[in-house]
């Protein structure tokens, strides 16, 4: 066990990278989910087809493949484009952090699109009509009437998507992001204790997912507090 102590600081910094990727891609995924569900509900045919294609493609392709396509694809495109300006350039890529965060956000955003769509449909249409009758603008209806009620319905699934997003961050080590799986790889080559090193990674992930699960449970309780007394 004592071999771990020398690596604790590395794991700590790796864990902060994991949390950073998680935060960045969570924001992007929620954004993609909101845009996607808005497109699907807009009634516009082209927007609907685009959003439908987005969800089909990104829910059906392995996350690892999406990460590889975005990282290597963007690298080759950027290199070609920049070589047109300056022939001396050898290789340019998007940092693995951003390529990976974008890739997993695209995948989880596709799942969130479906969740948000269902949640928006779950808000009684009479509420929207009432808001319209009161002369509240569409934007304000969205912010003050639809969003607060939709969140409550979306929370359970949203929590699950957040957990899978958290676990997907491990895949970004494949394209060379220096997070905890990467730290474990390095530590293994030095100490030749692979089980111990990867077990630490598992424990860190388990701790983060446990905290997330508890947080979502707390949020659900808060969101449903107006239903408590009626039961």
């Amino acid at each position: 066990m004592s071999v771990i102590y020398g690596w604790l600081d590395e794991y700590f910094w790796g864990a902060t990278v994991v949390l950073k990727v998680f935060g960045v891609s969570l924001v992007m995924a929620v954004l993609f989910g909101l845009i996607g569900s808005a497109a699907k509900l807009s009634g516009n045919r082209i927007a609907g087809i685009l959003a439908g294609g987005y969800t089909v493609v990104f829910r059906g392709t392995p996350e690892l493949l999406v990460i590889l396509i975005i990282y290597f694809g963007s690298a080759i495109t950027l290199t070609t484009v920049s070589q047109a300006f300056d022939p001396d350039i050898q290789f340019i890529d998007i940092p693995p952090f951003w390529a990976g965060a974008l890739a997993i956000a695209l995948v989880v955003g596709a799942y969130m699109t479906e969740t948000f769509r269902g949640a928006f449909l779950g808000v009684d249409y009479g509420q929207i009509e009432a808001a319209r009758a009161l002369g509240i603008s569409n934007f304000k209806t969205f912010i003050y009437v639809r969003m607060p009620q939709m969140w409550r319905l979306a929370l359970p699934n949203f929590g699950n998507h957040m957990l899978s997003l958290m676990k997907d961050t491990a895949l970004i080590s494949v394209i060379g992001l220096e997070e905890i799986v990467f730290v474990a790889e390095i530590a293994t080559t030095v100490t030749v204790k692979p089980f111990t090193m990867y077990a630490v990674v598992a424990v860190i992930y388990l701790a983060i997912t446990t905290v997330l699960t508890l947080a979502v449970a707390g949020m659900e309780k808060y969101a449903n507090r107006h239903l408590e007394t009626s039961r």
């Binding site: 080590s173 494949v174 990867y198 992930y205």
Partner: peptide, 11 residues
């Protein structure tokens, strides 16, 4: 359910 499959495979 709490750990990534990649980590499980590596372990």
């Amino acid at each position: 359910r709490g750990t990534p499959i990649l980590v499980q495979i590596f372990i």
